[in-house]
Structure formats: C-alpha cells, structure tokens
C-alpha cells in the first residue's frame, strides 16, 4: 500500500510544503495563551482558511492544526480528555480542504513534542511517550490524514517513541528535528547523529529533516550535514521566515518573500526534496518560493559563504560536525 506522499515523491523532483500555523492563527486573532487546537472545534472556518492559504499558494503538503494536540500539552488547558476529538477534527477539516482542491495534496497530521524531558534525565518514560503519541496519531488518522508529521523534536528518545507509536497505528510518517543550539538540537543531536538514528529505526519515516530553529542560514547548514551523511531517505527543509520582531503589539518575522524564494532554491541545492517554511512563513512567502523553484535552475550544493551572502550570518560558528575544530569536553580527572 502506497501513501500519497510517497507517490508524489516518486513523481516529482521537489514538493512544496506549507508555512506557519501558529503565526497565521495569531494573525487571525488567536490570543496569547489560547491552545490553537481548541479552534478546530470553535473556529473551524478559520482553520479551513489556514489550510486554504497554503493550498492556494501552491503547497503540495500542508500540516494540520494539531501541533500541541497531545495529552501533556492539552492538559494545561484542561482538555486532555479531548485529544482524540481535537485531532480528528483537525484532520477532517484538512481532508475536506484537500479534496476540494482539484489536485493531489497531502494532508499531514502535525505532531509536536510532548514538552517533557524524557528519562533518564527527565521524568517521561519511553512507554508513556509512545502512549501519548499513539493517542494523537489515532485521532489524526481517523480524521483522514494521509501521513503523520512529527516536528520540532530535540531529543532522540522522543523521536524514537513517536516512530514506535506511528508503527503501532500503522501510519506512514515524516519526522523533523529542530537544530537551534550551535548546529545541534537542544539535546545535542547533530545532523549526522540524526541520519544515523533515522537509518537505525525499525519503522523508518518516508522523509526526515529539519524545521524551525534559528533562521534559514543555520537550517541550510544542517541540510548540508544531512547530505554529507549520504542517506537515500528524502530530506525535508522547513525554515523560519527570518527572525521574530515585535511590531505594534504583534510578532512579525523579518524574512521577505524574496528572501524565502532564495532560501527555497538553496534548500533544493543542498539536497532537500520537500521544501516549506516554518514560523513567520505566510502564503505570500510560499508563492515566492514556488515561483523561484519553478523558474530557476538547480545549482551546486551551496557553501557557507554563499549561504551567508544570500541569507545572512549563522547564529554560531560551528555546525556541530567538524570534529577537528569543534570544542571538546574538558579533560576529567576521574578519566585520567
């Protein structure tokens, strides 16, 4: 049985992902503190408008409004008993929007982190994490998602727990991590670490990659890291539209559509097959990205200078990979 995403990946050279969910809903009037997932129930029209924004901009894939729709995050809003329902509706609205589009569009059920730290450092056990992801996955698949889409993960244990949960549900999936700390995830995972982890999974994703983090330059460097690891699994790139700025009481990302167009080209040159945006990426950015990808030829894998000159400075000197120059842990007396 082939899923729609695998089918499109086989047919096409690149696929356009979607943009920001949180930023867009915020622009529609979501208040600080509200759980966006509750809008699936209370404002289905706005969620449909969110999805249609991506569809009309030319996206081949869009993510459902369910990023924080797991037990531990909904618990904050005392909605932990509605995990299945809120996720099901998120996917149902997506299914309707995709079916009305008149072309093949992948409904990807968004699954974000639990927000908890896993054992042994933290409290959340592997089995509990699997259970949390499984509950959400069931709701999304019931609502008609084509694939599940894990994103913004920083801990390898959490990525593995989600893989196991999606296996239990029998759902095809994609999973990206967020590399925001000196070229690594917050938990210290490098681009090559991630490839090794993904390759080692029993239930491998259709595609893997990077999302969010700190700006498009850093994200591209991570893509180049993936490329060095030489994997055959398709790579996803979903970078933020610049950096958040606070303008007249709202958060505004400073990346222009033109800049995101350049980002999309460099992401493709760096080996990404699914290219979208993350925070701050609006339909106008997606239109510019699609236009750039359709009208301009492929180039060589960009080097650091090209990335810097096109998209701006990196947030750190190291990509976390260069063993020769990367700083090392101090020498320990007990080890001596």
């Amino acid at each position: 049985m082939t899923d729609l995403l695998s089918e499109l990946l086989a047919e096409r050279d690149w696929l356009l992902g979607d943009g920001a969910t949180g930023t867009t809903l915020f622009n529609m009037g979501l208040e600080a503190g509200e759980a966006p997932e509750i809008w699936n129930e209370t404002h289905p029209d706005r969620i449909r408008a969110l999805y249609d924004g991506a569809i009309n901009a030319g996206s081949d894939i869009f993510l459902t409004n369910s990023f924080g729709g797991n037990f531990s995050r909904l618990k904050l809003h005392d909605r932990q008993n509605d995990v299945f329902t809120l996720n099901r509706i998120a996917a149902e609205i997506g299914r309707e929007a995709a079916d009305a589009a008149g072309r093949k569009i992948v409904v990807a059920g968004s699954v974000g982190p639990t927000g908890e730290i896993m054992e042994p450092v933290g409290e959340l056990s592997f089995d509990s994490a699997v259970e949390i992801f499984e509950e959400q996955a069931k709701g999304l698949m019931e609502g008609g998602a084509d694939v599940l889409w894990l994103e913004t993960i920083s801990a390898p244990e959490e990525y593995k727990a989600a893989a196991k949960a999606f296996q239990n549900v029998g759902a095809p999936w994609v999973g990206t991590m967020s590399f925001d700390t000196a070229g690594r995830t917050m938990m210290g995972v490098t681009a090559t670490d991630m490839v090794a982890m993904v390759e080692g999974l029993e239930n491998k994703p259709i595609a893997f990659g990077a999302n969010c983090g700190v700006g498009a330059s850093d994200l591209l460097r991570t893509l180049i890291g993936f490329g060095k690891a030489n994997t055959s699994i398709p790579v996803v790139s979903k970078g933020n539209a610049g950096i958040p700025k606070y303008v007249h009481g709202h958060i505004h990302y400073d990346g222009t559509p033109e800049l995101m167009g350049e980002y999309a080209l460099l992401a493709r040159d760096a080996g990404a097959k699914i290219i979208g945006g993350c925070c701050g990426t609006l339909p106008e950015h997606l239109v510019a990205m699609k236009a750039a990808l359709e009208s301009r030829p492929r180039g060589p894998v960009p080097d650091a200078d090209t990335i810097r000159a096109t998209l701006g400075e990196f947030s750190s000197d190291s990509d976390g990979l260069d063993a020769g120059t990367a700083p090392k842990r101090r020498n320990r007396r007990r080890d001596a």
Binding site: I117, V121, G122, S154, T181, A182, G183, R184, M186, M187, G188, S316, S318, G320, P327, K328, R329, R330
Partner: peptide, 14 residues
C-alpha cells in the same frame, strides 16, 4: 561550556 556549545541540555540537567 553550555554557552559555548560544548555541553548540551542533558549534561547541564545532570
């Protein structure tokens, strides 16, 4: 070492 990207969150938590 956390600031300089030598240690990461798990090590700092420990």
């Amino acid at each position: 070492d956390f600031r300089d990207g030598i240690l990461f969150v798990p090590e700092v938590l420990l």
